[in-house]
Measured scan of single mutants.
Amino acid sequence: PEDLERKVRELQKNGVSPEQIEKILRRDGVDEREVQELVKKVS
C-alpha cells in the first residue's frame, strides 16, 4: 500500500537500516512478501 511505502521511505530517510525496517514491518503485521517488496524498493 501507498502509506506503507511512504513509511518505509521516511524510516530510510531517518537512517534506519533495511534490516530494522524489515523488523518494524513484520512487527506491524505486514505480510512477508510485502515486506520483501518494500525493502527492495528502498535498498
Rank of each mutant, 00 (worst) to 15 (best):
R33G: 10
R9S: 06
K40E: 13
L4I: 09
E22Y: 01
E2N: 13
I21H: 00
E37A: 06
E10V: 07
R26A: 12
D3S: 12
P18Q: 11
R27T: 13
E34Q: 14
Q36Y: 00
Q20K: 06
G29N: 03
K7R: 13
K7W: 07
K23V: 13
E22K: 10
D28Y: 10
K40P: 05
K7L: 12
K23L: 03
R33M: 09
K7N: 03
R9Y: 01
R27M: 13
E32A: 09
D31I: 05
E32N: 04
D28E: 13
D3K: 08
Q12V: 15
Q12C: 14
E5Y: 09
V39C: 07
D28A: 15
I24F: 00
V8M: 04
E5L: 14
D31H: 06
G15C: 10
V39G: 03
R9C: 15
E19A: 11
K7A: 06
I24E: 07
V39R: 01
E19D: 11
D31E: 09
D3Y: 12
V16F: 15
R33E: 11
E22D: 04
E19K: 09
R26G: 08
R9N: 05
E5S: 08
K13C: 09
G15R: 02
R26I: 15
G29V: 02
R9W: 00
L4M: 08
V30R: 04
L11E: 00
R26H: 08
Q36H: 14
V16G: 03
N14G: 09
G29A: 02
E19Y: 00
V35L: 15
V35T: 05
L25S: 02
D3M: 12
E10I: 11
E22C: 12
P1M: 14
L25D: 02
I24K: 03
E2I: 13
E10Y: 06
D28T: 08
V30L: 15
R9V: 06
G29D: 04
R9K: 10
R27I: 10
E32S: 07
K7G: 01
K23P: 03
V8W: 05
L11Y: 04
R9H: 07
E19S: 11
K13W: 04
E2K: 12
R33D: 11
